[in-house]
C-alpha cells in the first residue's frame, strides 16, 4: 500500500474525462443517454443475500434518506415447516445495521431486500391527482418534488409500502432507482455496495444485458403478482411465503 504515491497521483487523463462527465451531471453532459433506448429493472437473487444491510446504508448515503424511512430495506423471513403461510418477519431499522443472530431451529431463514418495484402499470402514479409522480419513458417511477402536494394518496396506493412522506420536505419520497446514476452509466448505490451481487441493475432493452440469459435459465417471480402492477424488480428463489 503506497499511500504517499497515491496521494500525489493525479487522475489519469482518460479517467479524468470519464469522471468529469459523471460529475457535471446535467442531462446535457450525458449526451449519449437516450431514454427511449432503456427499460430499467432490477434482479434480486435471494439465494445470495446475506442481510449485511450495505444496500440500506448506501441508499441512505446516496439519497439523503431520513432516519426511520426507507427507499430500500431488507426483511428477514423465518418460515417454519408447520406454518408456511404465517412467516415470522423482522426488519430492525430496515436492516440498516444488520440482523440479530439466528439459531438453527428447523425452519428456514432467508433475507428479502425490498425497494420500489418500478411498476410499469404503477398504482401509485395512477392515483396522483396532479401528475407529480410518473413512470419515465425509460421505466423509472419518479416523484417531482417541486410539484407534489404531499396528499399521500400514492402512499396508500402502493401495495409494497415503498413510499413515505419526507418529514422535512413534506412531499412524497421513494426509490428513484438512482436515476441520477443510471442515466450517467453508473449502477445504483445499492447494487454498487452489495458485496455478493444479490442485487443487479438490469436494462431490459439492452440485448447484451446479462439479465436476459438469467431470466431464460431461472425461475423468477415478482412480489404480489396478483396485484398486476407490472413490477420490474425480479426475484430469484423467491419463497411463496414472501409478501
Amino acid at each position: 500500500m503506497n499511500i504517499s504515491r497515491r496521494q500525489m497521483l493525479i487522475l489519469l487523463p482518460a479517467a479524468a474525462v470519464a469522471w468529469k462527465s459523471v460529475l457535471a451531471g446535467t442531462p446535457e453532459s450525458s449526451p449519449n443517454y437516450k431514454m427511449s433506448e432503456h427499460w430499467w429493472s432490477m434482479l434480486i437473487d435471494i439465494s445470495k443475500c446475506i442481510g449485511c444491510g450495505n444496500c440500506v446504508r448506501a441508499c441512505q448515503t446516496e439519497n439523503d434518506v431520513p432516519d426511520g424511512y426507507f427507499r430500500t430495506w431488507v426483511e428477514r423471513y423465518h418460515v417454519s415447516d408447520e406454518n408456511m403461510t404465517n412467516p415470522e418477519v423482522i426488519s430492525p431499522d430496515g436492516g440498516k445495521e444488520g440482523f440479530p443472530e439466528a439459531k438453527e431451529d428447523g425452519g428456514k431463514y432467508f433475507y428479502v431486500p425490498k425497494l420500489c418495484n418500478q411498476c410499469a402499470d404503477s398504482p401509485c402514479t395512477q392515483v396522483c391527482p396532479v401528475g407529480a409522480t410518473f413512470v419515465t419513458p425509460d421505466g423509472a417511477v419518479l416523484v417531482d418534488q417541486t410539484y407534489c402536494l404531499g396528499c399521500a394518496y400514492c402512499v396508500q396506493a402502493c401495495p409494497y409500502g415503498c413510499r413515505y412522506i419526507h418529514p422535512q420536505k413534506k412531499v412524497v419520497d421513494k426509490c428513484t432507482l438512482c436515476y441520477h446514476r443510471i442515466t450517467k452509466g453508473l449502477t445504483t448505490a445499492c447494487c454498487e455496495a452489495c458485496p455478493t451481487g444479490a442485487r443487479q441493475l438490469a436494462d431490459l432493452k439492452n440485448p447484451n444485458d446479462p439479465i436476459h440469459a438469467f431470466l431464460k435459465t431461472h425461475s423468477v417471480q415478482v412480489l404480489k403478482p396478483q396485484m398486476a402492477t407490472g413490477a420490474k424488480v425480479f426475484y430469484n428463489d423467491l419463497d411463496g411465503s414472501v409478501r
Binding site: P129, V130, A132, Y147, C148, L149, G150, C151, K169, K170
Partner: peptide
Amino acid sequence: PLQLHLGHPERSPEMYFTPHSTSAMA
C-alpha cells in the same frame, strides 16, 4: 381538512390546473 392535511397546501390549485384524469382525487 384536506387542505390542512396536505404537506404543501399552497400547491393545491394544481389539482385544478393539471388534474390527472386517472385520479379519483383530482
